[in-house]
Design a protein around this nucleic acid. Structure first.
Lengths: 168, 168
DNA sequence: TATTGTTATACTCTATAACTATA
DNA sequence: TATAGTTATAGAGTATAACAATA
């Protein structure tokens, strides 16, 4: 007879459930800015170093180039991002933020910081630090690429058996 | 100037990311049984108390009745679940597990327990208990219905401002 | 008239692969 | 011949609402 724990006693279930809710909440909090989380990821990428190509962006966030097109299209139509021709390789588009794009990126980052406080509202500062460290440990123990959200790369490695912890 | 933390320093980002990966990993681990997580939820519900209707199931897991039909169809075709007519209300279907359905439910529960170990493999027993408690606290601080996964009820309350903690 | 279950429909999201223009 | 970007297409998953049988 297999033991049936209540679901709320399971780290895996809680991670999955809270992950969905956190993602949904973050989507909601960004809504007044007229962007969704993948747009935020794209803005962050461009803001981190302007002039890079869509290919590099696609590799960085782990989505197919065909999806990048739609994201950049939307941001360009809203005047947040510019595609400029790269003189040394005219196949590639160099990506830049507009002034408005920088403003929206900053606003989105402020909302993200605010949302982080809301998510952690039930915890003391010490508990919050402990939770952060434990979550980092869980992530690290499964050799997951940093700074990439699997919602942007569903083909990525799931949290699965066979994920050998990095040596050392 | 808004401060830009690395994403891995954010509880919200880590919850969202680990939640996606955990859900994907659990889907993968169930695959040999030929079921997906919502099927597991349905089997658990029926196994918990047989004879209840699809309506009650729909309310319990928080999905529209039209989706329940497809889930129960699939499980019935595989011979894991039976629909029986309820003599006292012939509109309703009373749901039962077959012997094979019970067997698959037990096997799935065993895999779920095993997966829980894998997710927590990088933690000591003490750390694991602390993580569980902190995740429960985060969930509780946002008055989230227990035992329901938002992946089954996307219309449900996201982790958002306005989610007043329960009084007391 | 209301409710259980079912079906039909329409919408969103996505990956794949074909295509173009440059290299 | 290969690569950056784009477009076309087809598939999966979903909610909504119309529907049939029963109450």
């Amino acid at each position: 007879m297999v033991q049936e724990e209540p679901l709320e006693q399971s780290v895996g279930f809680l991670l999955s459930k809270l992950g969905f809710q956190t993602a949904a909440g973050f989507t909601a909090i960004l809504e007044p800015l007229g962007i969704v989380p993948p747009h935020f990821a794209v803005l962050r990428f461009i803001g981190g170093a302007e002039g890079r190509s869509q290919q590099v962006l696609a590799d960085a966030v782990g989505v197919p180039p065909s999806r990048i097109v739609a994201f950049v299209d939307a941001l360009e139509e809203r005047g947040l991002v510019e595609r400029r021709r790269n003189p040394s390789d005219r196949r590639a588009h160099a990506l830049y933020l507009t002034t408005e794009g920088r403003r929206i990126l900053d606003a989105a980052q402020a909302l993200a910081n605010q949302y982080e406080e809301e998510v952690c509202a039930g915890l003391s500062d010490g508990e919050r630090a402990v939770l952060l460290e434990l979550l980092q440990r869980v992530a690290q123990s499964h050799e997951i690429p940093m700074n990439v959200h699997p919602g942007m790369r569903m083909e990525g490695p799931p949290l699965r058996p066979g994920a050998t912890p990095p040596p050392g």
